[in-house]
Design a protein around this nucleic acid. Sequence first.
RNA 1: GGGCUCAUAGCUCAGUUGGUUAGAGCGUCACGUUGACAUCGUGAAGGUCAGGGGUUCGAGUCCCUUUGGGCCCACCA
Length: 885
Amino acid sequence: MKDIPPRYNPKDHEEAIYSKWEKSGFFRAEPDADKKPFTIVIPPPNVTGILHMGHALNNTLQDILIRWKRMQGFASLWVPGTDHAGIATQNVVERSLREKGLTRQGLGREKFIEEVWKWREKYGSTIISQLKRLGASCDWERTRFTMDKGLSEAVLEAFVRLYNKGLIYRGNYIINWCPRCQTALSDEEAPHQDVEGKLYYILYPFKEEQGVGNAGQGVVVATTRPETMLGDMAVAVNPKDKRYKKLIGMKLILPIMEREIDIIADDFVDKKFGTGAVKVTPAHDPNDFEMSKRHSLEPVKVMGPDGKMNENAGRFNGMDRFEARKAVLAELEEKKLLVKIDKHEHAVGHCYRCHTVVEPYLSLQWFVKMKPLAEAAIEAVKSGEIKFYPKRWTKVYLNWMENIRDWCVSRQIWWGHRLPVYYCAACDGVTVSKIKPEKCVKCGGLELKQDEDVLDTWFSSWLWPFSTLGWPGKTKDLEYFYPTSALVTAPEILFFWVARMIMSGEEFIKKIPFSDVYIHGTVRDASGKKMSKSLGNIIDPLEIIDAFGSDALRFSIISITSAGQDVFLSKDKFEIGRNFANKIWNASRFVLMNIDQNDNIVRVRPNIFSTSSKYIRPSRELSIADKWILSRLNRTIEAVTKALKNYKFNEAESILYDFIWHDYCDWYVEMSKSGCAKEVLIHALEDSLKLLHPFMPFVTEAVWQNIKERESIMTASWPEPDKKLVDKKIELDMEIIKDIIVNIRNIRSDMNIPYSKKITAIVVPLKKSAERAAAAGAGYIKNLAQLDGLTIDKKAAKPKSSLSAVTENFSLFIPLEGIIDIAAEKARLAKKQDALKQQTAFIEKKLNDKNFMDHAPEHVVKSEQERASKIKEQIDRLEDTIKGL
RNA sequence: GGGCUCAUAGCUCAGUUGGUUAGAGCGUCACGUUGACAUCGUGAAGGUCAGGGGUUCGAGUCCCUUUGGGCCCACCA
């Protein structure tokens, strides 16, 4: 036997194993007519990303599926890649430029883009190498980047197609604007957060000559953003509001600006909110913008793209929006126009990249019409063609899709796919084309200028499932691997990405992009907070890999991840996986110590135990333990496979954990010490390794190779359950054997009889089955209960001085002449008897209940009656035993 | 305002279609150097399944409701 240390040290194996895998080409998947495809596209992490626990969870799940399907004989393809992450990457590169005293504007567009590519060259593969440490079995030769040539072409193709279909338009609308990133954002990119704000009540006085005596001095409006009042073009009230009815059409003087504005009537206004009168700022509020269209009001922007007030803001020009807020309020206060200030909690949009408060801002942007795209995508989910795991996400998805709004896709940044839109200098006409057109489609003008904007990052991500396979080309890959099989992702990007991919798949390929969507939970710290750098509560996966091993990280995180529930992590949780890896390592050490390398046992293939014609007789007759572990193994194979099919990863793990640790190690290996068929010993280990491989790829490979040097376990075939080996009778017999052993151990523990003390036991089986089981297991019982002698005799009488146990299957006596504490033994047995009496009382109550007897199904009544009589019989036997003491 | 989700042992969580006495890991306690493993073994203690109501012969499981966490969506300034 090789010299195998008694501890599994992941560092001795993981790196070497991974590089062997990579060299082997086993990660590679090709279209293969003899195989079925199984495809997953990775949710592309940002190029700027570093591996965090969310990635670790997400990619472990994908790797489990990919490795499992690969072993099942599928052409299992996992397409990796990264996302150019427009805003995020631009921000990162700008930051690093700033450290060198440079700015984006100073460099100019072209130079800046060069800098980003350089940055990407240097740091862009960090996350890829980190995924490798996790054990990810992606087909790295297919690694894609959303700014690659092919993917960029896909983006242009998609844009042009949608434009030609009339699904892309340009227009002036109020969009979410981030003053820090200085770009438009989609609604999804500006998540609302509840903020404890204030509601300011401001008096707008009547125009002097209209100051009608009894109507007061003017109208009080309520606002959360007083600085926008500088751009107010009206005050609106509800036409049905009695308080204001007669004021409609009158004129007010906008304070500070001293401009005249009208009081208008609009149904939008809620009588109950604030004072029932709302200031109308068309350029800075989406509702007001809509109202302004209805009332032909001119929008006036009082703020620039940088969030500073502009020339339309009078003397506030140049002031930051929040400073301006204070200054405006101060001036109103001074003029006694600030009536009151209420506390007011409301939802405010924040930039998802820099968390700056976004400004609703009027600007000229490009949009995708979403309603027509949503139809097929809604249908695909409603019809069950696409399924969500867990199911509840279906509703969330449909709710969003059915209320979908147009997608603002233009971004005023430099890093990204530039819009394939060209403007004519002569006629302002718009030409949309993948390559720069020679002339304007409208007037034939030759002077064309490309739009400065780039597309939303997600405009490339939504094409990912097919752009990575070669679209718009008609490639073999696309034909074979598309639609993909499963998508594994976090709930945060359901709208950003998942929903849009479904729409794009239906639109561009006319086929759904994937059939199953598995949505896992969010990784949180032990107190339930989302892990984030700013909170400082990050657990670094690489640190965990260093300390516990990649397998430990993978196994542990999956074991505590139940179907879509959030994951609460703390460092100590990784011990589960580490200990389990070590357990397997040592089980294999034992097995190898007990196998004679010369007899070639390890070359025996798994199917020797099947009853097929290939049946090869093991070297000895199978013992009950051998048959039992084969039965358990085959049940385990079936259960693990079923759990995986249903995306119940943690269930699959716990089934395996129980089988390997408890059935195999605690019972079977222990029993094997008093003899077993070595073919079974190793076969069960090898199948366990295979089943475990998708979850713990490294240790299973290391052990696989320790057993015998051979091709990777990655390419071993996934075990098939052999139902003929599942034997209920054997399992029941084994339960009796275990029961005898546990009862003896119990007596030892309860009565303080050390294992060093030699004892004998007399088992009195009550039934044929118990007699058979006990006889078959006699050797195991002696060894595992540390017995000196064992008698199995149906007719044996209770020895005078002995400790006893009673079960439904047998009575058990341990004769201990002279050293028994009779009082203690009496008390112990009485306690057991009491427990049984309680049970029987509970059952009797049911059996005496007429309702139960009348209504419960016959088989339930029958089984309760049987239970009752069994327990009573045990109580009686205990009674006899106690009396005999 | 709408929706989702959680509450089960000291801690972290499992618990399939309602049917034995509700499980696991960690932690606790006792014992243990049987030649795989102390990252281990054997055994034990520990729960009126958040509160209330209902359906049912029977509820941790189904329905209603209250309380307390977490999350998502939403153009009332």
